[in-house]
Design a protein around this nucleic acid. Structure first.
Length: 264
DNA sequence: ACTCAGGTATCCT
DNA sequence: AGGATACCTGAG
């Protein structure tokens, strides 16, 4: 499976966009572990090759959100908004992935007060200890049951720190049915956010990340230190989302990526 | 040694 | 409502 139209598809930017933690550079290209599978990716002459069996193509097509028109989102940015125009040009190629809600919930609970390398280290440690083996020393993201029943010292050994209890709590809620992540696909945006925030350790920022990256709610707009910095510096402390109804989260990704990587 | 990470819960005023 | 503070741990 190949992706030839790279105007709004850039695997390097996606890997560095901070929305996924298990898409990493390898000697050959990139390797992604998601949805219980390993996907090797190579890039030659600007064409992105996804090395997968035929029957998995719809899964990855959906994962990379290939039916969504990102050029239309970019075109909606007002020309007079210089900063956002710069950010959009800089971030062009980023897409909002269709990731697993459970994996996003745990990943973003872990993310609080951690650097991205530290987040990745913890997630790999969890997967190695508690995930199903996928061959070649690789492991799927662990199930709710495996994390809910894991000995506390083994969870702690994954460098979760004070988040250990949060992870345990979330896993238990999913295992005992208190939090029904699949049913929440039917909830409206606000209901989804509120349900996610009922988990201890999940505040507004993490709930928005899970909504955006796990449930593909493009209206979600996670406000982290980088976004707040951009808004304070370039928008006098407040940023109106109303012009971007339906794709505010895409705008957030452009702002975040530009603010963190280019705008110092 | 020291600061700071893609935050959140809790405890103030 | 809004502000201050503690919290695990690893990386620079």
């Amino acid at each position: 499976m190949i992706i030839t139209d790279n105007r709004d598809f850039n695997i390097a930017k996606i890997a560095d966009s901070g929305q996924c933690f298990r898409l990493n550079k390898t000697a050959e290209g990139y390797r992604l572990i998601a949805h219980g599978r390993v996907l090797n990716i190579t890039v030659t002459d600007d064409i992105c090759h996804l090395h997968c069996p035929k029957e998995d193509e719809p899964l990855w097509h959906s994962y990379f959100d290939l039916d969504t028109d990102y050029a239309a989102f970019r075109a909606a940015v007002p020309p007079q908004d210089d900063y956002l125009c710069m950010a959009t040009a800089y971030g062009r190629g980023i897409r909002i992935l269709n990731q697993d809600p459970w994996e996003m919930l745990i990943s973003f609970i872990i993310s609080q007060r951690k650097s991205i390398p530290s987040i990745k280290t913890s997630i790999e440690a969890l997967s190695r200890r508690f995930g199903e083996p996928l061959g070649e020393g690789l492991y799927a993201f662990p199930s709710a049951k495996s994390l809910a029943t894991a000995p506390t010292e083994e969870l702690s050994a994954c460098s979760l720190g004070y988040r250990t209890g949060y992870v345990r709590c979330a896993a238990s809620m999913v295992l005992n049915g208190e939090l029904r992540l699949e049913e929440l696909r039917q909830a409206d945006d606000e209901g989804l956010i509120n349900s996610l925030m009922s988990v201890r350790g999940v505040g507004a920022k993490v709930a928005h990340c899970v909504s955006l990256f796990g449930y593909h709610r493009l209206n979600a707009f996670p406000r982290d230190v980088w976004i707040n910095r951009v808004i304070d510096t370039h928008y006098n402390g407040s940023f109106d989302l109303s012009p971007y109804l339906g794709f505010a989260g895409v705008i957030q990704q452009y702002m975040f990526f530009y603010g963190r990587n280019a705008d110092r």
